[in-house]
Design a protein around this nucleic acid. Structure first.
Lengths: 334, 334
DNA sequence: AACAAGTTCGTGAACGTTCACGAAGTATTT
DNA sequence: AAATACTTCGTGAACGTTCACGAACTTGTT
């Protein structure tokens, strides 16, 4: 059926090219890899022939004999949320510095869970860094001995991990809101209303400890979701004068929601985001946020993985888990 | 020197595990891959042993015998510019649908050129999609027979390509600016002042054709660069009342620059961006832009690559190059 | 013309795994 | 107790490449 010329069947191998050129394997190797010890005209003839036959050396055979280049997998929930590319960018940079390749899998297209991502990644990589969520332990099991660095989950489930001190962050935010006189506070969490995120839990606890009234509302993890949720929030709870959000993207949406409801930020209602992505500096007002240096996070993840891969760091041991702290970046919104 | 226990030296192979367990290769294979035909207790014993010895099957050997999974490389100038993750997200999604893996390389860390990225990618992938710029032909040479889909470059240099009809886009933008009464126009290009980008050339030509006055200024391809450049622009050319930018990120910066200079958008000066990234909806005013459906771009790139890989599409032939058109998304800024 | 030195090329082995098949052992039936 | 069926395991071959080494050919020197 296919009218494509002499295709399919099987890929051409080095032996096919050698036979066609009337030379040996080794000569073809020399021609393809620009090695020495081959006459110029044969080199060109072989290269030409290889091109015509559509020959490409098998990276598997090559890797087998030459020893492995290390490749790591990066499992990301949603490249559409600007937090993750910022993180990914830093991981890719640090990995490239070490000569590693990075295979990226984005499991946010409704196409599945982090576990599916790890399954797809598994045959191609020596290790994984990712936001794997609660199924991190299953991912580790899937990868066997290969190290995994999980972000934003409790220690111990995987070989390595990085988490964040949300109690600390929540304290900073509540302190700031108190300082500027906000007393009727709300927190906008990501995810279904039935489930409180780790960030949400920390904020609730911190508020309770300080005896501060806090309304918790929920929306999808997106700017649009946040905008709509904030619209409902101010309708039901008009007195709200301080808002903390799950992340910066939702804070941006919240800003739009507040504007649509005729509230001025920060005069009527202060807003604090979380994570400190560059987007925060482009919106109006500029976003006050609990900031994280994403380059540091990426660097820390890759450093950890490096230690795990070389064996310098004990898996599951001390030093293989890191806790980072946000700092408060005060800008226009609170 | 290293005090890590029994590490380094060489990776454990399947034979090491087999010897340690007193069984054969094949039995280890059966244990590791959860295959049938093995007793439960030997399976567990082997798995346990493998874990202790730090054994991980070589993906090269596995790939060699099982036949290749296809992996594609994605070469991106700068993951920090929100345009590229939006594009990357779509490529990753489409590739995942086909069961491909995606190796991402970001060459924007000052660490080098697109050619370096392709060099790093080459040993790991079967094909490349990327914004390779003018050195696309060299990249193709590097990859030999393997297909390359280049974005935003003229046809013919590589096996496949996708470009954009900037004349058409420029026409749309100038028409809109005319319709809302802007007559003293400026265009903010990315890159050094000595070089006019393809986008810039198209805008200049369109303006000349229409007999419209157009001032061209330059800045780095970043929001900050654009903000500063627009500050200088309004200082030197106070009458400017319409601004077109290289892309949306720079438009966002321009908006900040105009605000800092006390100009109201769109009243004092209208602004039109390019590419239609989601960010445009989060800033104030919402950005009028020459919009591209980035999911379409990613889909088109992967479709093209698929055709080239299977041989359904002739390399360098008709149908292996696509030209897409922007459409005008009218929002608040113009 | 003979020898040395350099250039060009080819052959066996190895990389680590899975596949196809056959051998041995164990349970089930007659 | 023998025959059968099933379970568990092992062995040769193959995947496609590069490395180490040696053979053949070419050129230069005495």
């Amino acid at each position: 059926m296919s009218s494509s010329p002499g295709r399919s069947a099987k890929r051409a191998t080095i032996l096919d090219v050698a036979a066609a050129a009337g030379v040996s394997r080794q000569t073809v190797t020399r021609a393809m890899n620009d090695m020495t010890g081959i006459r110029q005209d044969t080199r060109e003839r072989v290269q030409q022939l290889a091109r015509e036959m559509g020959y490409t050396p098998s990276r598997y055979a090559k890797g087998l004999v030459q020893g492995a280049r290390t490749a790591i997998g990066l499992a990301i929930p949603d490249l559409t949320n600007p937090y993750f590319p910022a993180f990914a960018s830093s991981v890719v940079e640090m990995a490239t510095l070490r000569g590693w390749n990075v295979v990226v899998d984005d499991f946010g297209h409704g196409s599945g869970s982090s576990l599916d991502a790890v399954k797809r990644l598994s045959p191609q990589v020596d290790a994984v860094i990712g936001y794997l969520g609660p199924s991190a332990d299953k991912a580790q099991a899937l990868l066997g001995q290969r190290p995994v660095v999980v972000l934003d989950e409790p220690a111990g489930l995987t070989a390595g991990g990085i988490s964040f001190d949300y109690s600390f962050a929540a304290g900073l935010a509540l302190e700031r809101l108190g300082a500027i006189g906000s007393t009727r506070l709300a927190y906008l969490d990501a995810g279904p209303a039935t489930l409180l995120s780790a960030r949400g839990a920390a904020v609730s606890r911190a508020a309770a400890d300080l005896g501060i009234e806090l309304t918790v509302v929920h929306s999808r993890d997106s700017a649009e979701g946040a905008r709509d949720a904030v619209g409902s929030l101010v309708a039901e709870y008009p007195a709200v004068d301080g808002l903390l959000t799950f992340n910066d993207l939702m804070a941006a949406g919240a800003l739009k929601g507040l504007a649509a409801s005729g509230r001025s930020v920060p005069r009527d209602c202060a807003v604090i985001g979380m994570d400190g992505i560059p987007l925060g500096l482009l919106i109006t007002p500029e976003l006050t946020t609990l900031s994280l240096d994403l380059r540091d996070v990426g660097r820390a993840a890759v450093d950890l993985l490096d230690g795990l891969l070389t064996g310098a760091l004990p898996p599951y041991g001390a030093g293989s888990h890191l806790t980072l702290r946000h700092e408060l970046a005060i800008r226009g919104s609170a």
